[in-house]
Design a protein around this nucleic acid. Structure first.
Lengths: 185, 185
DNA sequence: GCTGAAGACTTAGAAGCTAAAGTTCAACGC
DNA sequence: GCGTTGAACTTTAGCTTCTAAGTCTTCAGC
């Protein structure tokens, strides 16, 4: 009936209308916000994925670089801390680090003061790769928010932060691989 | 220095401060919005993942159920349409359908008018499973937005929809598996 | 020194994907 | 009428990346 184009994705409006037909108790306003959030994020992830691919790294690589940069100079972390931070098992972390070492983005060496521990350290190349990714990301982000007035930006940031604090308080555990589910809700 | 707890995730505020230290040109307001969007979505996905797990289905299953329900009564689609909709190859779609058929959530039968085609149809159980997932999801969503006034909800929905339309116009292609990158940006 | 615990790595196996070949059917040309 | 072409789905083979469980190395306490 009201479908637009073939097998393509329905518009947000069409999608909400369809859900309402199938599920009577739906609050369309809540659904608009939540679905827009999901779909926005999906597009953001597509954009980020393109950017990292352009730089010759995987999204998995980028996650590790981000964690190391966030840890601050001298950009060092142990494999188990990284694994906790990214929600991976130590085994999976070992493999990711293998790849990053092969790419020259991090180094792996034993801690001489406690030779059980291993230190993963960002290289200059790794830091530069992160910077390039950030440069691309900020261009995209500025473009995304281009139409918003300063007042709208302030208000949006404030509201989203409020929601985030609420949900992060409610489920304090951060970890956990998610993989899919970036799709339309 | 300013780190809060061990290997845990930094707060949004800490994260933005750290990025600013490392990357001078960062617009903190843009970053606040974008990072909050990412992190919010991650938490939403965790919540949805828990809910589907509770219902004994995978997120992959849920995506297929959603696509079928969105297509409207009589809830039928061909495998290739589903594959396009979900951004999968036909081969991957076959496997997903295998599982859904085994779970009794959809049926697979040949189209008698053109026996090359196959019709995937949602069963009553499948529809009920989707409804249960929606019931759980709407409870979570209502709770998430609980603190927002009606004015704030209207404004938020409007702004997010505007952003979404902008980005969906800019990158019209919907498809593409994303997998990771739900993590903190 | 020996023992136990902790941290990282190795191996085995599972899940889910893609690419490419295979199968079945409909449609069209001569 | 028969063969060829092409479409739609399935099958097969192989890849990637994860988890679980076991192994190796090193440190700390006795």
């Amino acid at each position: 009936m009201g479908e637009t184009s073939g097998a393509g994705e329905p518009t947000l409006e069409e999608q909400i209308a369809a859900y309402q037909r199938e599920f009577q108790d739906l609050d369309p306003q809540v659904e608009q916000i939540v679905s827009a959030l999901s779909r926005l994020n999906r597009r953001m992830n597509v954009a980020y994925g393109r950017q990292t691919a352009e730089l010759g790294i995987t999204n998995a690589d980028w996650e590790v670089l981000k964690a190391l940069v966030l840890s601050g100079a001298p950009y060092r972390m142990g494999p188990s801390d990284l694994a906790k931070r990214l929600g991976l098992t130590p085994a999976a972390m070992t493999h990711r680090i293998d790849r990053l070492v092969a790419e020259g983005l991090v180094t792996r060496e034993r801690d001489e003061s406690n030779r059980v521990r291993v230190i993963i350290e960002l290289t200059g190349d790794g830091r530069e790769k992160w910077m390039e990714a950030m440069r691309l990301a900020t261009v995209f982000e500025a473009d995304l928010l281009q139409d918003l007035s300063p007042q709208e930006r302030t208000a949006l940031g404030e509201v989203l932060t409020r929601l985030l604090i609420r949900v992060e308080d409610a489920q304090p555990d951060a970890g956990g691989r998610l993989s899919d589910l970036d799709d339309t809700v």
